[in-house]
């Protein structure tokens, strides 16, 4: 399914406690590359812990803080709650 058919919202608008899948990265090349290198690229799962102005998220077991500009540049698709038990590490 193309990104156009998904209901995408910026990461900062993902409710606290919800999980989303990263679909689109906007922003300059350097930012996108660094985000991908940190395992936060397209298809990564992200759980929002708290925050709207500055977001606190869990990606692959790591807590990451993103400022508003960064969180606005990451578009995610909200997913239903899921469990990772007995699955592979991370959930890429």
């Amino acid at each position: 399914m193309s990104a156009a058919h998904l209901h995408l919202s910026p990461l900062c608008q993902l409710p606290a406690g919800a999980t989303g899948r990263v679909c689109v990265l906007n922003g300059d090349d350097g930012f996108c590359q660094r985000v991908r290198e940190m395992g936060f690229g397209e298809a990564a799962l992200v759980t929002k812990i708290s925050g709207t102005a500055t977001s606190l998220c869990l990606v692959n077991g790591t807590r990451l803080a993103l400022n508003h500009r960064a969180a606005m540049s990451i578009l995610v698709e909200q997913l239903p709650a899921l469990s990772l038990v007995d699955g592979p590490a991370g959930a890429r």
């Binding site: 930012f31 985000v35 940190m38 807590r63 990451l64 400022n67 500009r69």
Partner: peptide, 11 residues
Amino acid sequence: APPHMIMELPP
């Protein structure tokens, strides 16, 4: 421009 920030928070 105001910079992007992405920073790891340790346990």
